[in-house]
Design a protein around this nucleic acid. Structure first.
Length: 388
RNA sequence: GGGGGGAUACCAGAGCGGUCAAAUGGGGCAGACUGUAAAUCUGUUGGCUAAGCCUUCGGAGGUUCGAAUCCUCCUCCCCCCA
């Protein structure tokens, strides 16, 4: 039964599932925010410090067709800082991106900057990677910071556990993330958006690679009845099959009528497999970071554009032509740009990869609508690259 | 014409009797990258029948148990003075 909300007073967004796949748990839908509608499943380009590295917003809108991008609480807090963000009127006004923004809470930095932070019950003390200055992040001020940034979707402050991670630590960490979530929710409900549009808060399931912990965490998260739910702590080095196992387990417990966001994933194959398991939202640095390093994702597999074999290949960058760069530039030319250390090379690769990722999820959506997702996925996966 | 310096692997450039198939940088080739401390990082870069062997430090000879390193001659390059 679908609940109609008479007014969107109590919710920041509206999620509607449009169709589901009969042979898998894949579904497609729309997520309506005050900055526009997101068609799911969706891939969200990562724009850590308020920019998707190397890509103009015009290209991101018109060529990549990004519907929502990420920002990062920790990084934006350090630079440009809260005074500037607030004076600008929030991140949308500051950087000019007028579509939805989701901010990660800094929970990933608890993992990636592990040697620069100290964890306590109260929160995390970071030594800035920029100037070494000390900054305390708590569930409360992470909410406040995300209010100031003005993200349409705010993320709860969590600890992304590493892999491998022993059971006792994973359990302890999961409970800490849960306690932090309660504090996040309390602060979230005690505060209001600053810029006249609404904000949602997504909690995050943890539990490392342990089935019982993941189940316990998913149940805890589910009962918060948030507007969307995230799965974190995956794609940190565990076997791919383990990631799928955890996703499947958790998706079976999280509410079906709310969007599910699998954080930090992944490769094109990862994305298709996880869509099949019921994930609606993805983000990953791969298309941009790997793109800057010369890796191109295409429907025919992965290519390293720096390889000598492209030296005299004057065919289009990608014959499928998903964005203007694919026809505008040849493989030989883009290789030349990379070899010569020209910044245009990484920029072209980033646009191409993001356009491909957005095409991939858009096509998945179409296939779900047409009821052909599972067979389409089965024939896509072998082509996308066996290693990934 | 006189005086001085130098030629080292794809390039630049250390090494100045054995631990040298030869530092380091660049270039080349390949790899890694999953809620971005990343336009970053790693490996490799004479040949082979590869835990070993063979051929290399401008060329030809020589000294020595042993030479990229010392000596002689040759070739070429650079600088200074006329």
């Amino acid at each position: 039964m679908k609940i109609e909300f008479p007014a969107q007073l109590f919710f920041a967004m509206q999620f509607q599932i449009e169709s589901t796949d009969s042979l898998s748990s894949a579904r497609c839908g729309t997520l309506i925010t005050d900055h526009g509608t997101i068609e799911t499943p969706i891939f969200m380009p990562v724009g850590t410090v308020g920019t998707v590295k190397g890509v103009h917003f015009r290209e991101l809108r018109e060529d990549v067709k990004a519907q929502i991008i990420l920002g990062n609480t920790y990084h934006l807090y350090l630079r440009p800082g809260l005074n500037t963000l607030e004076a600008a009127g929030g991140l949308h006004r500051f950087n000019g991106w007028d579509r939805p923004i989701l901010t990660d809470s800094g929970g990933y930095q608890v993992y990636s900057l592990t040697d620069r932070r100290k964890m306590k019950e109260e929160g995390v003390l970071f030594h800035s990677h920029i100037d070494g200055s000390k900054h305390q992040f708590t569930p409360e001020n992470v909410m406040d910071i995300q209010r100031i940034i003005g993200a349409d979707i705010m993320m709860a402050f969590d600890e992304c556990t590493p892999f491998p991670c022993d059971y006792d630590y994973a359990k302890k960490s999961m409970h800490l993330t849960h306690r932090w979530l309660e504090r996040c929710l309390a602060r979230f409900h005690a505060t209001e958006p600053k810029y006249g549009y609404r904000q949602a808060l997504f909690p995050i399931v943890q539990g490392s690679v342990y089935r019982d912990l993941r189940m316990q965490s998913a149940e805890f998260i589910a009962k918060q009845e948030a507007e969307g739910n995230a799965i974190g702590g995956l794609s940190v080095g565990e076997p791919t099959e383990t990631m799928y196992e955890m996703t499947e387990l958790v998706c079976g417990i999280l509410p079906k009528d709310k969007p599910r966001y699998l954080m930090g994933v992944g490769t094109p194959v990862n994305i298709l497999e996880n869509i099949a398991l019921g994930i609606d939202m993805f983000d990953c640095v791969m298309p941009t970071r790997n793109g800057r390093n010369g890796m191109l994702f295409t429907a025919g597999g992965i290519i390293n554009i720096r390889n000598e074999k492209w030296k005299n290949d004057f065919s289009p960058l990608d014959a499928s032509g998903l964005s203007f760069v694919d026809n505008q530039y040849t493989r030989a030319y883009v290789r030349h740009l990379f070899i010569a250390g020209e910044m245009l090379g990484p920029m072209i690769a980033s646009i191409h990869n993001l356009a491909f990722y957005l095409w991939l999820v858009g096509e998945a959506r179409k296939q779900i609508q047409e009821g052909t997702f599972s067979s389409w996925k089965a024939q896509m996966i072998p082509k996308l690259g066996n290693r990934l």
